[in-house]
């Protein structure tokens, strides 16, 4: 469908080429199959839950799924941008391990300031500032000190996680503010406000990444740095920018989690690996099998649907992580086995 091999010359004249076309066609088809397969699995799971539980399809429950996915969704979108700009090789390319800890600290900053009597505006700015500052440290460590992202963000994760413990003394800091109340409440149509935040954040990011020159250049920087450099792009700025953005996502997720949990709680780090998996899994939902914002959103919702459905059916939600693990291995095996052998 996508590939028309008889583009340049009649097929007969090409007969003597050792044709690489066959592999790219079958690869393209496999890619479509993979993406179609992923969507099919999503739809099947959705339909199964709809039949198995009468509550599943109610607007209230669907809104709940969105709300429950909001925090990990925002984080995964932030991570997706880092992966786009840093490239798919997880060790030497783009990864931000400090995201979950960032969320924890930002939430703690927000909660602590609210408890100390600061108004929402100050607390929000402080939380977002915390996230941005963490992003800036990552950006410097990666672009200036040239520490590989995996290690740089690992160290930053430790520092940030520690700062959260220092700030909260490993306790829950309750926070009830007008902003949090409206965030944890319902928006229009009785759908939770958090759901709107997730969709809004995803929409804005998707527009920037998928519809502006900036987004296009991010992809070029991550996928083929030499080509990006040859096009006159300053690689380091894009990479630094991606870490700033993921830092900001951490700050936003912090405020969301403070709303969802009515304050800051410990154990934010638990969210790290699920977020990484969500972002990586998102690639199957994109046409070109690259990380995309919409793909990540779908993947976050897919995980949300799994958790929610298992809860409704009184099944152990512990299966969710196993299913995520299996899916990621299946997806990566499929793409690895389909990749043409290095010649």
């Amino acid at each position: 469908m996508l590939v028309d091999t008889a583009l340049l010359v009649p097929a007969s004249a090409r007969a003597d080429t050792p044709s690489p076309q066959k592999t790219t066609v079958s690869q393209g088809l496999a890619g479509i199959a993979l993406r179609g397969g992923a969507l099919a699995v999503f739809v099947t799971v959705f339909v199964l839950f709809a039949f198995a539980s009468p509550i599943f399809l109610t607007p209230f429950n669907l809104g709940n799924i969105l709300a429950q996915s909001a925090i990990s969704g925002v984080l995964a979108i932030g991570l997706t941008v880092v992966i786009i700009a840093g490239g798919g090789n997880v060790v030497s390319g783009g990864i931000d391990l400090s995201l979950a800890a960032n969320m924890g600290l930002s939430a703690a900053v927000y909660a602590a300031l609210s408890q100390a009597g600061q108004v929402d505006g100050v607390a929000v700015l402080a939380a977002l500032g915390t996230g941005l500052a963490i992003g800036a440290v990552n950006a410097l460590a990666v672009t200036w000190a040239r520490i590989v992202p995996l290690l740089a963000t690992l160290a930053v994760m430790n520092v940030v996680g520690g700062l959260e413990l220092v700030l909260t003394q490993n306790t829950v800091i309750p926070a009830i503010t007008p902003l949090l109340e409206s965030l944890s409440g319902s928006g229009p149509f009785g759908i939770p406000a958090l759901a709107y935040v997730l969709l809004g954040f995803a929409l804005i990011t998707a527009v920037v990444v998928q519809a502006t020159p900036l987004g296009l250049r991010l992809y070029a920087v991550g996928e083929f740095p030499e080509a990006a450099r040859a096009s006159g792009l300053a690689l380091k700025r894009f990479i630094a920018g991606s870490f700033l953005f993921s830092g900001l996502s951490g700050g936003i997720a912090g405020i969301l989690s403070a709303a969802y949990l009515s304050g800051s709680t410990t154990g934010a780090g638990e969210l790290l690996l699920p977020v990484v998996v969500t972002a990586l899994l998102g690639q199957v939902f994109s046409r070109r099998l690259v990380p995309t914002i919409t793909g990540t959103l779908l993947s976050a919702l897919f995980v949300g649907v799994l958790i929610n459905g298992f809860q409704l059916l009184n099944l152990s939600s512990t299966l969710v992580s196993g299913i995520q693990g299996l899916l990621i291995l299946l997806v990566v095996s499929a793409t690895t086995l389909l990749r043409p052998k290095e010649g």
Binding site: P213, L216, R217, Y219, A220, E223, F224, E226, A227, A228, A230, S231, G232, L233, R288, L289, V290
Partner: peptide, 20 residues
């Protein structure tokens, strides 16, 4: 060939000087 593999032809042609 310095072209990004996952780009469409249009994207590859105009990378760095994209029309808005």
């Amino acid at each position: 060939r310095l072209l990004v593999p996952s780009f469409t032809v249009g994207e590859a042609l105009f990378l760095g000087r994209e029309p808005r």
